[in-house]
Amino acid sequence: MIPAQGAPLLGEAGALAVIGEAYGQDADWIVIPKARIHPDMFDLSTKELGYAAQKWVNYGLKVAILGDFSAENERSTAFADFLRETNRGDRLVFVADLASLP
């Protein structure tokens, strides 16, 4: 699990920071607390979440972003659709708690 304290992660640079923190750990999932994600990542028009997701997928990582996403879902139907679609897969998921990991 990525620590909840630290610089906010944003876009491709944030994705690379996660890869660096996770490198060498034998974990099924990399779990990132929502508090570590820069708020711009949840605005899909910035494309920052897409950049990060693509980097994680390219490195073959399974990433879970842990938190409550109800406010983001209410603010943006595009984000709600993105969350629903990614949660159908097995590489990037948004979960409320660790028990919800696939």
Rank of each mutant, 00 (worst) to 15 (best):
Y51R: 10
E72W: 07
E12F: 12
A13F: 01
A80N: 02
G20Q: 14
N58D: 14
I37D: 02
L16S: 09
Y23L: 13
G24V: 07
A64P: 02
A80C: 01
A52Y: 02
T46C: 04
E12G: 03
G14F: 04
D97H: 05
V31F: 06
R75P: 00
I19P: 01
G20A: 13
L9I: 09
G67R: 07
D68Y: 03
A35R: 12
A7K: 14
A27T: 12
M41V: 09
F94L: 12
P39Q: 04
L98A: 09
S45M: 10
K55Y: 10
L66I: 04
A35I: 05
Q5H: 13
G67K: 07
L49T: 01
E85Y: 00
E21L: 15
A13K: 10
A27F: 06
D68M: 00
Y51Q: 12
R84A: 09
V93H: 09
A99H: 07
Q54K: 13
K47L: 13
A53N: 09
F69D: 04
A52T: 02
M41P: 02
A71M: 14
L9D: 01
D43T: 10
I30E: 05
S45K: 15
P3N: 13
H38L: 08
D26R: 14
G67L: 12
S70Y: 00
M1A: 14
T86Y: 12
L49R: 02
A64N: 03
D81M: 07
F82T: 01
Y59E: 11
D43W: 08
F69W: 11
L9G: 01
I2W: 05
R84P: 00
F94W: 04
M41E: 09
I65E: 02
Q5F: 14
G14S: 09
S70C: 00
D81R: 13
K34T: 01
E21N: 08
K62S: 11
V18R: 04
V57F: 13
F69A: 04
S76H: 06
N58M: 14
D97R: 10
R36S: 06
A64E: 02
G24Q: 07
K34I: 12
D43V: 14
T77G: 11
A27C: 11
V95W: 03
V31I: 15
Q54F: 10
D26M: 10
I37S: 03
A78Y: 12
F42N: 02
H38T: 08
A52Q: 03
L9R: 01
R36D: 03
I19E: 08
V57Y: 11
L16E: 13
F82P: 00
S100K: 12
K55R: 15
D97L: 04
F69H: 07
T86W: 07
E21G: 11
L101C: 04
L61S: 00
Y59V: 06
L98C: 00
G11L: 06
I32N: 01
A4Y: 05
